[in-house]
Write a protein that binds this DNA or RNA. Structure first.
Length: 294
DNA sequence: AACATAACAGTCGT
DNA sequence: TACGACTGTTATGT
């Protein structure tokens, strides 16, 4: 069996490009704020990687044991061993503060770990079909322009925009990510919404995660895997008829990144993942939430 | 009972 | 031309 897939570097791990864009008017000019390279702790250096990430040595070890385990079991073992090392890394956080917006962004996973996690999720996850793949909005039932599935603690549901998404039992790799996020953030998430964007034509429209059954004290933790995609926040009062001139906040969500949307961001700001025809790859996004049981 | 809308279609500008 | 930014839905649920 060929285990080399774990070493595949499909997606480069690079800095996020953050910036803001002026509200559309005659002076509209894009103003980009480059984010400096991550300092000293160069996560792309091979030396650091040996420390942080399980490499081929352990692959071969498992192989030579004559272990006939299926491919995915092998990947699971790597993630279990790799995650504690992620926890120990000193993460470089970027804080983004605006009027009632509060974000934290970091590159959580080394590239190899992010690649493995993406592969495991691609192999393991089944997405909703039928009614659960539709959304009710402006009086119409429409297919969501992406794939979705939700997991969480038994009995939990997530309601938004007139639909109900039931928690499926936690798959092992998402449990592992949930526990890692508990360590990194200090919050115990009990639910995750998975969105899969097959390419740059898949998208998500503007909305606020301001549902009543979300714990208003907890952030929403968004993990991005695969194709980097543009993402933006837009203040609610920039919409007609108010049209206040508050700048958008633009981000590029990188492979292996974690974005924390802290309160009260989702009370005041919409966010969206616009289509990007030039972004060909698959992206999987995990938004971990804390839902108040009812 | 105001109010918001995780979607699309249409317009306009580049 | 195609893409991206922006506007207006529309009938239902809260």
């Amino acid at each position: 069996m060929d285990f080399h897939v774990i070493k595949t570097k499909q997606f480069p791990l690079s800095d996020g490009i953050l910036g803001t864009k002026k509200q559309s008017d005659e002076t509209s000019k894009e103003q980009k704020i480059g984010i400096a390279s991550l300092p000293e702790e160069n996560i792309n250096s091979k030396k650091k990687r040996k420390v942080d990430v399980l490499d081929c040595t352990s692959c071969e070890h498992v192989n030579k044991e004559g272990n006939e385990e299926p491919h995915n079991s092998y990947l699971y073992k790597n993630l279990d061993l790799a995650f504690p090392s992620v926890k120990r890394r000193s993460l470089q956080w970027r804080k983004i503060i605006r009027n009632n917006l509060d974000l934290d962004y970091t590159l959580l996973f080394p590239c190899d770990v992010a690649d493995s996690l993406l592969q495991v999720l691609e192999n393991e996850l089944d997405y909703f079909t039928g009614d659960l793949a539709k959304i009710h909005i402006f009086g119409k039932w429409l297919d969501v322009p992406r794939k979705q599935v939700t997991y969480g603690d038994p009995g939990l549901t997530y309601k938004y925009s007139g639909i109900v998404r039931p928690a499926q039992p936690w798959p092992q790799p998402l449990e592992a990510v949930r526990d890692l996020l508990g360590n990194v953030t200090g919050y115990n998430f009990n639910f995750v919404l998975v969105n899969r964007y097959k390419d740059g034509s898949d998208k998500m429209g503007e909305h606020k995660d301001d549902e009543r059954d979300l714990d208003s004290q907890a952030p929403i933790a968004s993990v991005s895997l695969g194709q980097a995609r543009d993402f933006y926040f837009r203040h609610q009062d920039t919409k007609p008829p108010k049209k206040l001139n508050i700048e958008k906040v633009l981000l590029q969500l990188q492979h292996g990144s974690l974005l924390l949307m802290n309160p009260p961001t989702n009370q005041f700001w919409y966010h969206a993942l616009p289509p990007r025809k030039s972004a060909p790859g698959v992206r999987i996004n995990l938004t971990f939430r804390k839902i108040i049981p009812h």
